[in-house]
Structures are given as C-alpha cells and as structure tokens.
Design a protein around this nucleic acid. Structure first.
Length: 569
RNA sequence: CGGUGAUUAGCGCAGCUUGGUAGCGCACUUGGUUUGGGUCCAAGGGGUCGCAAGUUCGAAUCUUGCAUCACCGACCA
C-alpha cells in the first residue's frame, strides 16, 4: 500500500474526549473515529488490526474443532420471551419494532438464536458434541460507554457455543477451549492471565475469564504471590482467619457519638483502628409467601468492602442486591444508617468471617448518636450465620492455600463458561439418546472481545511516540520510508524496487511515498506502530545499504539491499 | 439515573466577566524555501459560535428551555 492511496488520518493533537491511552492513540494513529457515544467507525489501519485479531481467533477456533457460522444481529423478541431474558435483561437490551410493529432486539449475545438453531438441526446423540462459533457485532446499550472501543456499545465479539449430552463431555470441550484461548492470547503476544470467575447471571458451574493485565483495566484480579492461582476479586474467596477469636476482656459499654456517621468518623472519634469496628449494612432479602420483603443485616469489619456477587449468591438475599431504603432501615432497626449494630437485632444477621473473629469490638447501638464498645459475639449477641461476604484485600492468605493475595488490574478480553441446561431447557433443545429417549443438551459458551483486544493490546504496548504493535497484529509488517525521494532518483528507484519485491513476496508493506519531510514520516510511522522501518537515503546508498529500524527495540542497523528480503523468510 | 463540566473552523483552544460585524495554534490550499526527526517565509480557503425561544437598536457574550458529549458515582456481561 502506498500512503498516497491510503487514508492515513493521523492527528498531532489528542482529542479531548479520550481518557485512556489506547483510546487516545487509536484516534491519533487513525484507527477509529467516533460516530456517537459508544459507536466507532474503523478506519483502514484499525480494520487491518481488527481483522488480524479476528483471523487468529478464527484459526484457533477451527483448530479447537468449532464450525464457523454467522447469525443475524437483529433477533425476534419471541426468542427472548422463550428464554425469559426479555424480562430479565435490563435496558442494556436494545428493543425495536419493525414496520409491522413486531418486536425485535439488537443482539447483545446469541444464546437464544444458537440454541434454537441447534434444537432444529440436531436430532440424535450421534451428532454430538458440536461446537459452533461466529464473529459478529453485538450491541449492548451500556449505561456508560467509555474508553473508546474498550467499552463501546457496538463491538465485535467471537462467541462460541458447544452442545453435549453429558457433563463430562462438556468439561472436555471446556478444557479444549481453555487451551485454545491460551493459544490465541499467546499468539496475539499479550500478557494475559486466565482467572477464576463468577458465573454471574448466566448461571452454570465453571467459569474462567481471560484478562490482559493493564493498570487501566476495569476489573480487580486477585493473584497468589506463591502459586499460579488467579481469580476475579468478585470470586476470590476470603478465608476465615485461622487465629481463634480472643476471649472477651472488655465490658459492654454504650457511648454517645454525635455526628459520627461512618466508620472513619467512629475510628477518629474513639481513636481506634477501623479494624476493631464493624459495620452493619441492611439489604433486601427474598420476598416471602406473604409478599413481604424481609430486611437482612450484613456485618463486616470496618476496613473491608462488601462483595456484592458473593452476597447475591446467598440464598436468603435478593439478586440483584438491593440496599434497604432509609424508611426500611428505620422500621427494621429503629435508627438511622450509621448507628446499626448486631446487638439486639430481631432481623436475620449474616456475619462475615473476619468480622466474626473479632472480639471487644465497636458497633452501632441501634440508637441514633450511639455506639457500643467492648462488644463480643455470643456474650452480647447471639452466634449468627457466618459467611464470606467481603472482597479479598492485598495480604489476605490466598484461597489456594499457598502465599498471599496480590491485586492487579485486568481488562477482560475473554470469558468461558459451562452454561449447563438453562437455555437448552428453555428452547427445548434436545436429541434422542442411545436409549431412544429425549435428552436435553448441556451447553458451554465461550466469548472473546475482538475489538476490545485491539484496545487492550495498545494499553499494554505503547510508548511516548505511539503504539508498539505485537508483530502478529501490526497493521503493516514493514514501512518503506524514503528520504527526500522527490529529489533523489536513486532513492526513488531503490524504494520502488524494494516495494515491488515486498509486495510480490506477500509482505504487508506501507510505502511512504508522500512528499513529506523525514520527521513527519518517522513520527507517523512510530505513532502507527509499524514494527519495522526500512529507511532509504542517499547517505547509505553509496554502500548499497538501507537502514532498518525496529520500532519495538529501537535498534537500528544497516543492511545490504539484497539482504532485505531475507528478513521476511 | 444522580452529581460535575463542556459544546466557538477538521483537531486543540481563546473571546463571554463589562453585548457593538469572530480570533490563535495545528491541519488544509497556492507559491517559494528546506530535506536523516513534526523546517521557514508569504498569500489564501474554511464558522448559522450545539439547537430553540426570550431580553436588546444590536447576542458567541445576558436569561430560560432542550440536545449532545465527557468525567465521577450508581448500574452492568
């Protein structure tokens, strides 16, 4: 490709709307342009990268035995009614009507369509297991699209689905997909980790997320410093403290705490460590037969954070998690938020493992402007249900039993999980088994955020000059940068000849044939992140040499012209 | 959805307080100059100042409403 025929569209200045570095560089290097909130046009350079990522994903899916298909982006609403997600899926699901006023959705994912398809196409266990995938645009009407294509509303995703008669077969394919994902991210040249994940609203048993490690990531990942354990903080178990609870040594006392509203205030007021204070949060339980919603108290150590996913997974708590309103709090405990404590509560109380290990602690007295000190479990309030309610923090013992937790940020680029029979049951996806009986299939589901990978790769590979593409996904393998070609026939001839050779050899080459100063060319190619530059100038032509510059290492070397082609063998 | 801020040329911004025919830098066009790291000089083109209404002789500027975009939070595959 010659730059004179190419839409280069680089920008010297950073558009003000771009927050993270990948978004800034994608705009500056001319990869994408914003159309509306969360919607992007892919320019030639960006599309080249996107296609490369897509192809690596496709190749590895084929290697894993999956068949490529393509499903429509627009899906009839009745499929979603059938699966129950028409009601369950929130406003993220974009709903629309056609000219006959029939309802449709813009697909945020394709479980319904594929399950329906397989239900219609398969009839015998002999056709199983079967894996299908597509690479298709999805639309999710995100509340807050941000970070460019990292969290866009329309984005490119590879989604694969596997169908099985039995769980052990599903597990085998799950393993195959796990390794396929590792191969994909290895080939992409990214620093990534598979991490244990919560199965979330989709349900199912086992789940791993694949995260690209980057400070700008939106997820917290808990690692062990002594093993290869890694889990999303949502999922990482906070183990019960091993030390025995200390015996009560203080008397229970009531103190007046005016204008003390949160844990930090209490700690300041009493000059105590927040770790000796507990906080009590009131949330909504599951609606009972009378249609009442019970309020449940959750007790945590002052320095710990509530883990909403863990709480939602408790049988007595409503999902999604809903905090009690001020009115509900007042009627349940007869005081305001900020002064609630477990002593004397009549509602159900669930205590976090770490909070349960405390003795002689401070808590709210269920009376405004009042706290209790010297509180002890059993002696002052009944022994309650104990559960893991909190996020792990750095330094916690790792749930794998080895080492301690370290927390890093990650960008979720892949997610695999064992779906089970949820959709197969809803969509009546079954085949005849060996015994001639109808048997509902069990499913696996495997997603990769293709467009998000492009952003994640930049987050991980850039410097002050621009993008440093991993070789496998660079838009061009090499650029020819002639110095002052307009004035030097020799430079022009050499550049043209080299360009022709590279094209013939099937190399993806960008020939900078603009009449630009060298600095402009260098700056553009460094911004675009082309891994290799071939710099042709009068200076080295006397010796029949061309300068080779490596974008990643910064190394420069001189090569004889006839050696150039051997670089690409 | 709540809070905050923004909206003036393709991009980055000034002008608004104190109303009087819209400016700077980059980019773009033309000519010259320069040519191994974003040259320099000169001359140009490009704007319903987000939209609508109001105040006024006169509105980018003051008032009101709306829209869009972004950030923080809530929410969420």
């Amino acid at each position: 490709m010659r730059t004179s025929q190419y839409l280069l569209s680089t920008l010297k200045e950073t558009p003000s709307s771009a927050e993270v570095i990948s978004h800034q560089l994608m705009l500056r290097a001319g990869l994408v342009r914003n159309l509306a909130s969360g919607l992007y046009t892919w320019l030639p350079t960006g599309l080249r990268v996107l296609k490369k990522v897509e192809n690596i994903v496709r190749e590895e899916m084929h290697r894993a035995g999956a068949n490529e298909i393509l499903m429509p982006m627009v899906q009839p609403a009745d499929l979603w009614e059938e699966s129950g997600r028409w009601d369950d899926y929130g406003p993220e699901l974009l709903r629309l009507n056609d000219r006959h006023k029939r309802p449709f959705v813009l697909g945020p994912t394709h479980e319904e369509v594929i399950t329906k398809l397989v239900a219609n196409e398969l009839s015998s266990y002999k056709q199983l297991p079967l894996s299908l995938f597509q690479i298709q645009s999805k639309f999710r009407d995100e509340i807050r699209p941000r970070f460019g294509v990292m969290r866009g509303r329309e984005f490119l995703m590879k989604d694969a689905y596997s169908f099985h008669l039995e769980q052990d077969c599903l597990e085998k394919t799950y393993q195959t997909m796990f390794y396929a994902y590792c191969r994909i991210f290895d080939r992409l040249g990214l620093n990534y980790r598979p991490v244990l994940a919560d199965t979330g609203s989709i349900g199912g048993d086992a789940s791993h997320e694949f995260h690209v490690l980057a400070d700008s990531g939106e997820d917290d990942i808990a690692f062990s410093d002594a093993s290869d354990f890694a889990a999303n903080v949502e999922k990482a178990e906070a183990l019960a403290p091993v030390e025995e609870r200390a015996e009560p040594s203080q008397k229970l006392a009531e103190i007046t705490t005016p204008n003390v509203k949160n844990i930090d205030d209490v700690a300041d007021f009493l000059n105590l460590d927040v770790k000796t204070i507990i906080k009590t949060l009131l949330v909504c339980g599951i609606e009972n037969d009378q249609g009442d919603i019970p309020i449940v108290a959750l007790v945590l150590r002052g320095d710990h954070q509530l883990n909403e996913v863990k709480v939602e997974n408790l049988p007595q708590i409503s999902s999604p998690l809903t905090f009690a309103t001020d009115e509900q709090i007042l009627s349940a405990v007869n005081c305001n938020a900020g002064f609630i404590g477990p002593v004397g509560l009549t509602i159900e109380v669930i205590v976090d493992r770490s909070a349960a290990q405390l003795s002689n602690f401070v808590c709210g007295a269920n009376k405004n402007e009042t706290h209790l000190t010297g509180v002890n479990w059993q002696r002052d309030c009944s022994e309650n249900e104990i559960a893991d309610l909190r996020n792990v923090v750095e330094g916690d013992p790792s749930p794998c039993g080895q080492g301690n937790i370290v927390i890093k940020r990650g960008i979720e680029v892949g997610h695999i999980f064992q779906l089970g029979t949820k959709y197969a049951e809803a969509m009546k996806c079954a085949v005849l088994n060996e015994g001639g009986k109808n048997q509902t299939l069990t499913m696996g589901c495997y997603g990769i955020g293709v467009s998000r990978i492009v952003a994640a790769a930049i987050e991980q590979n850039h410097d002050k000059y621009g993008i440093k593409w991993p070789e496998a996904i660079a838009p061009f393998q090499v650029a020819i940068v002639p110095m002052n070609m307009a004035k030097s026939a020799r430079v022009k001839e050499t550049a043209e000849a080299l360009y022709k050779q590279l094209i013939q050899a099937g190399i993806e080459v960008l020939f900078d044939d603009r009449k630009e100063r060298p600095g402009v060319m260098f700056a553009d190619h460094e911004l675009m992140g082309t891994p290799l530059l071939l710099i042709i100038g009068e200076r080295n032509l006397d010796a029949q040499q061309i300068e080779l510059k490596n974008r990643i290492t910064g190394e420069k070397s001189l090569l004889a012209i006839d050696e150039i082609m051997s670089l690409f063998k």
